[in-house]
Design a protein around this nucleic acid. Sequence first.
DNA 1: GGGAAACATTGATCCATGTCAAATATAAAT
DNA 2: ATTTATATTTGACATGGATCAATGTTTCCC
Lengths: 222, 222
Amino acid sequence: MNSVCQPVTALNQSIDLADSYLHRRIVAKNSEVLFQQSTPLTDMYAVSSGIFKLCQQNDGDDENIIGLRFPGELIGEDALYLKTYNYTAVAIGDSSVCKVSIEQMSACGKLVPVIQQNFIELLSRQSHVRQRNFQAYIGKKSADSLLAAFLLNIIERNASYTGSDDSIHLPLSRNEVANFLGLRRETLSRVFSKFQKEQLIQVDGKKIQLIEIDKLTKLADF
Amino acid sequence: MNSVCQPVTALNQSIDLADSYLHRRIVAKNSEVLFQQSTPLTDMYAVSSGIFKLCQQNDGDDENIIGLRFPGELIGEDALYLKTYNYTAVAIGDSSVCKVSIEQMSACGKLVPVIQQNFIELLSRQSHVRQRNFQAYIGKKSADSLLAAFLLNIIERNASYTGSDDSIHLPLSRNEVANFLGLRRETLSRVFSKFQKEQLIQVDGKKIQLIEIDKLTKLADF
DNA sequence: GGGAAACATTGATCCATGTCAAATATAAAT
DNA sequence: ATTTATATTTGACATGGATCAATGTTTCCC
């Protein structure tokens, strides 16, 4: 499991015990669907590389992005006790995940306590990531602070995998980011332009680099 | 544990095994502090009754509310693997919690697997609550949809405890709600007035009752 | 019960973001 | 390469929420 789900460090100790029985590596090309909303929940996923977006169909028109998942993070663990997934998971750019059968995981855990223990640590870590994620956006309304918070948040979450703590390759369209943040693409575009003009960030295609992290942090805090 | 932490159903099966060794009931009066940000993390809490707010000191001026916890929900589990709490937890109105020692919980779990299993279910349920919580606010900017989403979210979370799925006793000040939602108190007040005028909700002191849940749901969805 | 403090509502004005429209840049197709 | 489609940026104006100020209401303390 180590070699495959590298970023999922908390599970490392279970390697020898669980190995290939517990997980299976899945490669997902850009815009490939991992699972569909409302289908039976059978597996949990750990992102190995790339990015996944979680979305729900907004009645009528277009989809609603309700979350992003980066390497080292789980997908589907929040619905472990439900019968069906309540959102659709889609790969953003070429990505890969570890697929873990809930049933097998549970059965295996009963025999090998250390697996359960690692799983608890993993869940707690997820909780923490989500809480920080929530904090990043709650109580913020200005476009500047939303984008600053977004950039800092995704780069922090991506850092553990890529090592780079000031840049990210983000294959999301402006539309998708705007949708996620609750801004209009025009507004988002203006803020991006402003941040570049003020030398806070540098954008090159899909690559975003943070130049003035301190200033961005201040913006994000209000 | 059952009688004390009633709402925490997932832990019910551990009663006989863990009982009073694992948890301790704590009563917290209004505005009493459960733990302070940056102090060593030793315990996890399960809310039994009342409401708790989680907040961080915003450098300079006033506090920032970064989360609310209702009966049946956990506090501090998201930092299980950290050394210190990263927010302060304060009781809103007279409340009570179960205090669970992380150390004892862990030690006990090693001996009794079923405790670990229940804990995993509990953590997964928390993840789900947080995800719904996140969904409620991400991508929303209009004051109307924010308040509608907020009311529906807290009443859903409170329902499992009180049984009432259309009203809530919310001892939060307008200022606190506005702070949490990222609105100005004047704006929030106007929306409250509008919702009342349009007969969507009914407010009586700290008691809020939802009249037109369908319309509120539509508003919340955009 | 009276007075002060804290909290909540309402009105008037200003500014940030939404909206609509057009231009430019990028990607895809032939 | 050229065309076509799609995505992104920029401009002009309208609108919702912020801000400032004033008034009304509740809570608390003596």
